[in-house]
C-alpha cells in the first residue's frame, strides 16, 4: 500500500526543519553566551572557576543545537506526520524508507567528529587548567611551575611563603567525620578550622582523610578532590578574586554528611600573611601536640580514644607492634 497523500518534496520538510533549526540555535546560543554564560556557577573567583565556567559554556553552545535539533524534529513530526484517521492505522513508507545509506554514514561521521573534538578539547582544557581544580592523585602531572619545589620544601619543613614572592602555597585539607580542617606547612604546620587563602596565588591543595572517603568541594574556588584515607590527593587553583567561599563535602561520608560544610576567605596577600603569622604564633602550643606534618596520616584503627588523628610515624603498619598479639577491638 502506498502513501495515501501525494508525496511532498522530501527536501521541503528537511529544508524547513534545517532553517528553523539554524535560526533557533543561533539565537539560543547567542542569548546563552551573553546573558547566561557569565553567571554560570561557580563564578570567576579562581583560574579553575574561570576555566571551567568557560568550558561549561562551550559545551552548552554545542549541546544546545543538538537538543534543539532533535526536539524540533520530533515536534515537527508530531505536528505534521500524525495519522489523520482515527482508529484504523494508515500505512506509509516502503522498502526504501528503511534505509538511507548516505544519511546513516553522515550521521555516524558527524557524531564521531563532534565527539572526538569534544574529547580533544576537554583534554587540552585539563592540561592548560593544571588539572582544572580536580584531584590529580598523589603524583600530579599537570601543575603550576614551582609546585614541586614548594611541596618538597613544605614536607621537609623549610617551606616559605611571603607576599609578592610569587611562590606556590601548599595547604593541607584534612577531612574527617564530619569536619574539614586545614594545615599550613609553610607556617609551622598549624591547623585551622577555616580555610584562609591569599589572593593572586597558586595554591596546592593536599587532600587527605582520617577515616572514610570524603570529598573536598570548595564551591566558589572550583576545587573538588576526594579525601581518601592514607592517600594524598592533590589539586591546584589560582585565586583571582577576594571574597568568601564555601566548602562542602560532596561524597557521602556517613550520618552527618549533610552537615559537613564550612567556609573560607580569600584575603589580600598582606592580610593573609598577617593572619598566618598571627595564628601560627597563637596556635604554637597546640601545634606542638599535633602529629608531625605529613601528607597522610594513619587512621587509628582502635579509635578507642576517639582520636582519629594519631601519630604520623606509625608506618608501615604492623598489627603486632601496635596491638600486641591480641586482636584490636573495633
Amino acid at each position: 500500500m502506498t502513501s495515501e497523500n501525494p508525496p511532498k518534496n522530501d527536501t521541503n520538510h528537511l529544508q524547513r526543519i534545517t532553517v528553523i533549526w539554524i535560526i533557533v540555535s543561533i539565537i539560543g546560543d547567542l542569548l546563552y553566551w551573553f546573558l547566561v554564560g557569565p553567571h554560570v556557577p561557580p563564578g570567576r573567583m579562581t583560574s579553575t572557576a574561570k576555566g571551567n565556567q568557560f568550558d561549561f559554556n562551550v559545551l552548552f553552545i554545542i549541546a544546545f543545537p543538538v537538543l534543539v535539533g532533535i526536539w524540533e524534529y520530533m515536534l515537527y513530526a508530531v505536528i505534521n506526520w500524525r495519522s489523520k484517521k482515527e482508529g484504523v492505522p494508515e500505512s506509509v513508507g516502503g522498502p526504501r524508507a528503511a534505509e538511507n545509506r548516505k544519511l546513516q554514514t553522515s550521521w555516524i561521521a558527524i557524531t564521531t567528529v563532534v565527539v572526538l573534538l569534544l574529547a580533544a578539547y576537554g583534554t587540552v582544557e585539563v592540561i592548560v587548567g593544571k588539572g582544572s581544580g580536580g584531584g590529580e592523585g598523589p603524583n600530579p602531572i599537570w601543575q603550576p611551575t614551582g609546585a614541586v619545589k614548594a611541596e618538597t620544601a613544605a614536607l621537609a619543613g623549610n617551606g616559605t611563603w611571603s607576599p609578592n614572592s610569587n611562590e606556590v602555597l601548599p595547604v593541607q585539607v584534612i577531612a574527617q567525620q564530619w569536619k574539614f580542617t586545614y594545615r599550613y606547612p609553610t607556617f609551622g604546620g598549624f591547623e585551622s578550622p577555616y580555610l584562609i587563602l591569599p589572593n593572586d596565588t597558586n595554591i596546592v591543595f593536599n587532600v587527605t582523610s582520617l577515616d572514610v572517603i570524603h570529598s573536598f568541594w570548595a564551591y566558589q574556588l572550583e576545587v573538588k578532590a576526594d579525601a581518601n584515607p592514607m592517600e594524598n590527593n592533590v589539586a591546584f587553583t589560582k585565586t583571582e578574586q577576594l571574597g568568601s567561599f564555601e566548602v562542602r563535602c560532596s561524597e557521602l561520608c556517613g550520618i552527618w554528611h549533610g552537615a559537613m560544610f564550612n567556609s573560607g576567605q580569600v584575603l589580600t596577600p598582606a592580610a593573609f600573611m598577617a593572619w598566618a603569622t598571627k595564628t601560627e604564633a597563637a596556635n604554637a602550643v597546640n601545634t606542638k601536640d599535633l602529629p608531625p606534618f605529613a601528607w597522610t596520616y594513619v587512621p587509628d584503627a582502635n579509635g578507642s580514644s576517639g582520636g582519629y588523628y594519631p601519630d604520623g610515624t606509625v608506618t608501615p603498619y604492623s598489627p603486632v607492634e601496635v596491638y600486641g598479639s591480641k586482636q584490636p577491638s573495633s
Binding site: 561557580p42 579553575t48 571551567n52 561549561f56 559545551l59 569534544l118 576537554g122 582544557e125 587548567g129
Partner: peptide, 18 residues
C-alpha cells in the same frame, strides 16, 4: 546530553557529586 557535561573532566569538577 547532561552526560556529556559530566564526562568532560573540567566541567565534572563543578557537577560531580551534586
Amino acid at each position: 546530553i547532561s552526560g556529556v557535561f559530566l564526562s568532560d573532566v573540567p566541567v565534572n569538577v563543578t557537577v560531580h557529586g551534586g
